[in-house]
Design a protein around this nucleic acid. Structure first.
Lengths: 129, 129
DNA sequence: CCCCATAGGTACTTTTTAGTATCTACCCCA
DNA sequence: TGGGGTAGATACTAAAAAGTACCTATGGGG
């Protein structure tokens, strides 16, 4: 059995939900189950390979559930497991923080664009300056 | 001027606080200012190069403040900026989630060790099964 | 004079991660 | 017969991230 040693909790968290694609996938799945093709369309630039690879890893970590419908053409739905949903709040906050940060930079003159602003919980920013 | 395009907020967040070392550095700094050497000791395995490199990037993004004391031998203190502190809650949650996840896996028979459990807010786990 | 401690820069190499291209399977439909 | 539509596997290549080794500066102390 391989032994894993971490110095701080966040190290483990990032191993599970870190990387280029996992946070994005999870932020989409937190709204409900999605088919493979839906995820592909929702996440421009992701390749089929990276999508399935990351989903498999999330499955292995009991974050994502894979449901296969036995039909032709194939239909597969991905969703957060009950355990994966314990990440919902964090995922939401990561999204919102990033959105507000983009606003802040834009106000600061940076040329930065956010295409899909899905989380707009309220009008009070966590940080205003 | 270079244009940045994001599809979803979390993409931006991860660009700023993602990677192998940044979340760890930030989780340490959220307790207060630390000297370079303190950070190095607090984060085993990080190299001087990675530490300063990541700190410079966090500085560029207005997350971390660098204070140089003009003395010999040199003394430099790093701390979260006021803006960087808007990440405090998220950082805390990332730490705690990782800690609880390690407990969960350990209970599940995995050989996994957490050396520094710094965030123990209460006895109610976000997810118990 | 040389080494200590401190903080940091830089060229180069290795490792990890991600991307590309091509392959499978299945049934339907024209 | 040969597409389309779905989901996915795999070998190979490219790019990004991290690690290694060695260099700088400064003043004090032995």
């Amino acid at each position: 059995m391989k032994q894993a040693i971490y110095n701080i909790g966040v190290e483990n968290t990032m191993k599970i939900i870190g990387g280029k694609w996992k946070p994005i996938i999870l932020c989409h799945l937190k709204h409900g189950a999605m088919r493979t093709g839906e995820l592909r369309r929702a996440i421009p630039n992701i390749t089929q390979k990276m999508l399935t690879q990351q989903l498999r890893e999330l499955e292995d970590d009991d974050i994502v559930n894979r449901k296969v419908y036995n039909q032709i053409p194939p239909k597969v739905e991905y969703s957060l497991t009950a355990y994966g949903q314990s990440l919902n709040k964090i995922l939401e906050e990561l999204c919102v923080w990033g959105e507000n940060d983009i606003d802040r930079r834009k106000a600061n003159g940076e040329n930065i664009i956010l295409l899909n602003r899905e989380d707009v919980p309220n009008d009070s920013l966590p940080y205003a300056d």
